[in-house]
Design a protein around this nucleic acid. Sequence first.
DNA 1: AAGAATGTTATGTA
DNA 2: CTACATAACATTCT
Length: 237
Amino acid sequence: MSSPQGRFRAGAKKLDRLVLTTVEAHGKHLFYRWENQSLLHVHLGLYGKFRSHPCPPPKPQGAVRLRIVGDAHAFDLNGPTICEIISSERLEILCRRLGPDPLRRDADPEQVWQRIRKSRASIGALLLDQSVISGVGNVYRAEVLFVNQIHPNRWGKSLSEQEFGAIWETLYQWLRIGVKYNRIITAHSKQRGKPGRLNGAERLLVYKKIHCPDCGAEIKSWELGSRKIYACDFCQN
DNA sequence: AAGAATGTTATGTA
DNA sequence: CTACATAACATTCT
């Protein structure tokens, strides 16, 4: 996040010379541990954003929930769903209800599979269920089902173990690419060079697309698990 | 300038 | 009890 040293203000609290000791992510929940033992929990939600400023930072713009000021740089946290100081008990409760995160070393895909194989819920809904698997999100959900040719409406229990294995493996690879380039990239063009150079339209396969990149058919979209899903009825079944 | 959105949880129902 | 579906919330961007 920021330089690990800085001042830090949260709500009525203003703390001096805090030093960041560890940063950890579990799914989309972020946890910042500070030297004074305090624990900051952040969830960006749909539009939360960290913004960097040179010092001295300008007046806070919009919903700034947190400002960290170092010697040379400052960071604002705008519009997160969650920004709170929590106890370690709360941290434990939070993490206990989160399913495995493919990016984490401690992630056990078998746990996810055991939930999916017994479920009558659609695989599309299951991939967004944070107690089943965490960190996927709406874009990767559409993309991972497309590339593995699995229809979002299929029941979890209809998937083969091999199909689930392929989903997990794809997510594992893609999420790492996402971290590396700091953006979601699922389409890899051989022509265009580095994925970092792809524009928004090029770097995804089905999400918000009109036509299927494989067969050219119209991409269908509908609500699934209270989010919009995109799929090709011909290539995914 | 209305409405969708790269998200999650609480609550209700079968 | 479990497991699903739906509503509610929050702010930004187009």
